[in-house]
Design a protein around this nucleic acid. Structure first.
Lengths: 194, 194
DNA sequence: ATTGTTGTCGGACAGTCGTCCGAATTAATT
DNA sequence: AATTAATTCGGACGACTGTCCGACAACAAT
């Protein structure tokens, strides 16, 4: 077990991540986390000062994870079409196999609607994600397509927003069979053949 | 003042709607609502039984409002292009002038991630919205476009998800100037000229 | 006029929450 | 070995939460 040599602060962070992604930030108390981590309640304040401090740290872990995975995904393919298809597949994969992390992302996004601290972290994630997408996908080739009328930044933001919104709808309606078609559809809408 | 002849239960509902949309469901207590409504705390339980009951009622009011506005919006235009442009304008308008209602929608969507009661209400909203979009926008004309490869249902769901996701990003990054371009961009991506 | 129903209120209840503090233990430094 | 610093713990504190109950008022129906 690699968990043996984790510091107590790491354990707390890990357990907090799992708890929130399973039950939602509004339904998790510090006592829940402390007891699941087999740690005294006061240790959470010792390492992270506040509940907000702890949850903020969880948010940073999550956003860093997403950012890295998005970049890794976009690095793989060689052509634009491949990269976009990979990005769509990545979100589809999140929906299928990492529903908890995706729910956590939406939950923390909801927190960002009311708290400036969380808002700045999430803003940074979306800004960085859009930048990466712009860098890897929006090549001159795409600009020559039917999308030449909009800026690179706008196009990248549109892609991100679409993936984000459709994934959220997919989480809320898991019974739909062709629920991930819209993701592939995005590429078609952009004029790609994937 | 039309508020004079509102029943107490209506006042409570109205105040609850406003409170949640201003501070978020996790940050509003029944006492907050009761005091703002100038009503005894126990009255909230008298009329709505639970906190969940009250918030659920707020959710139903909100979803009904959105559904009606979406339908009204789509009824106006005569052509497909107009209808789609109107729908985009409607979301843009929400972002600019009804930010509270939009935030409330996202907040309750977040609640739907953890509670089955809220989930079914929100599911219904998205399902009905997609149906309406499909009915008004996806005519044979659109099917003959470059989108002929996907089903009507999928296309409608894509439009809804895109509007939803991009609006959420727009709320979180209000400083961006051309933040609503992606909305218009959606139509361009679909091959429309608006 | 009396009875019963509905609405309204204040207050109390038990439980949970985040935070903090003092003591005990362990580790590091001198 | 002795002193200082960093961890870890249990417990307590005050504040806040949702829920519930009994009393009183308004009104309707008999």
């Amino acid at each position: 077990m690699k968990e043996e040599n984790l510091s107590q602060s790491d354990i707390i962070l890990k357990v907090a991540y799992r708890c929130i992604s399973e039950k939602g930030y509004a339904n998790v108390s510090l006592r829940d986390i402390a007891s699941e981590a087999k740690v005294a309640l006061s240790q959470l304040n010792y390492y992270y000062k506040n509940k907000e401090g702890l949850f903020l740290e969880v948010t940073k872990v999550l956003t860093a994870k997403f950012l890295k995975e998005i970049e890794d995904t976009l690095k793989k393919g060689s052509t634009e079409e491949e990269k976009l298809a990979d990005l769509v597949s990545y979100f589809r994969h999140l929906n299928n196999h990492s529903t908890d992390s995706l729910r956590l992302l939406y939950d923390l996004t909801g927190m960002a609607l009311w708290s400036d601290s969380f808002k700045s972290v999430l803003e940074d994630l979306f800004k960085s994600s859009a930048d990466i997408i712009e860098q890897y996908i929006i090549t001159p080739k795409a600009e020559q397509s039917l999308l030449k009328k909009v800026s690179k930044e706008t196009l990248a933001r549109t892609i991100l927003g679409t993936l984000y919104g459709i994934s959220l709808l997919a989480i809320l309606a898991p019974e739909e069979k062709n629920i991930y078609d819209p993701l592939s559809n995005l590429a078609l809408m952009m004029g790609y053949e994937i």
